[in-house]
């Protein structure tokens, strides 16, 4: 007997996605991969919004997801522009070598 799918399943899936994204942000050294992991975390947030919208029978949560996707698009474009300009200035996107702002 398989358990029926409840909100908890979706929330645990979102938690797994968020934690994988956070793990990537913490352990990867390529700035582009770090950006992709941030996108993963944003998607986990979207999933929680949609799961609660479905649970409550109220689709306003869909609008939150819509705005998050729009802001993520803006974030990705500006972030990638910064990565390009850092690469042009330093010749690397390895975040371990980009530490001139450390004290």
């Amino acid at each position: 007997m398989i358990q029926t799918i409840s909100t908890t399943h979706y929330l645990v899936l979102a938690a797994a996605l968020f934690c994988l994204g956070m793990l990537g942000v913490l352990i990867r050294r390529n700035a582009l991969v770090v950006f992709m992991c941030i996108e993963l975390m944003l998607n986990a947030t979207n999933l929680t919004f949609l799961a609660f919208a479905r649970e409550r029978g109220d689709d306003l949560g869909h609008l939150s997801a819509f705005f998050i996707i729009a802001v993520a698009a803006a974030e990705a474009s500006v972030g990638l522009a910064i990565v390009i300009s850092v690469f042009r200035a330093r010749g690397t996107v390895n975040i371990e070598e980009l530490q001139s702002m450390k004290h």
């Binding site: 029926t4 909100t7 908890t8 929330l11 913490l26």
Partner: peptide
């Protein structure tokens, strides 16, 4: 960082499991 992430996942899962296991019905 890895340990902290695993701890976060376990904590989130424990919290979410407190919620209802009922199938999603139209509310």
């Amino acid at each position: 960082g890895g340990v902290a992430v695993v701890a976060l996942f376990v904590a989130l899962t424990l919290v979410f499991r407190q919620g209802s296991d009922a199938p999603l019905t139209w509310t």
